[in-house]
Simulated assay, not measured.
Amino acid sequence: MKKFPTNLISNMFYTIFVVSTIITLFIVYKDIDNSFAIKFVIGYVVFLMLFIFYFIVATVNNMRKVKWVDIIKRMYRFISTFVLLSGTSIIYCYFFRQTEIDYYRIFHIALGLSLGIAFFDLAFSSKKNVD
């Protein structure tokens, strides 16, 4: 039995994502209101959830192939970026906004950005680039 290449699966996911994003943006921008458009947008949201799940699985799978030294460097980059982004946001809100500081929002945004900065390239790495 022949093994299905993961590059082909990845390229199919990316192509479907780009095409369906363009179609969904067109549907939303033109305010098209029929049953097919609504079903397409709902299908797009489901596909987007599966696409995010695929990214997480691909990142974890490629992370297993990375050397420990590189993982430690990435964790250091993650922690330092998280602290820097959180601190910058808190200082900005303290000095420039007169309302109460929303720590929940600040830490979630900083967490997502720092995870993306530290580990995003692992979702796109192949076996050649990871080693």
Rank of each mutant, 00 (worst) to 15 (best):
I27W: 03
F78P: 01
G116A: 01
M1T: 05
L113C: 09
T99R: 07
N34E: 12
D33R: 04
D31W: 02
Y103M: 13
L85Q: 06
G112A: 13
T21S: 14
I101A: 05
L85N: 04
S80N: 09
S35D: 13
Y44G: 09
L113V: 10
L84K: 06
K73T: 05
F82Y: 14
C93N: 10
K127M: 08
Y104A: 09
H108Y: 07
F47R: 03
L113Q: 06
I42D: 12
V130F: 05
F13V: 02
F17G: 02
I117R: 00
S20G: 00
I32P: 03
N61H: 14
L113S: 08
V41E: 07
T88C: 14
R77W: 03
Y103F: 14
R74P: 11
I9C: 01
L122Q: 11
F119T: 04
V19S: 00
F82C: 03
T6H: 03
I22G: 02
F17P: 00
M75W: 08
I101R: 01
F124R: 12
F17L: 11
G43Y: 08
S35F: 06
L111C: 04
K39W: 13
S80R: 08
L84W: 12
I91E: 02
L111G: 02
K2S: 04
L115W: 06
F119A: 04
Y14P: 00
S125P: 01
I38R: 15
L25D: 00
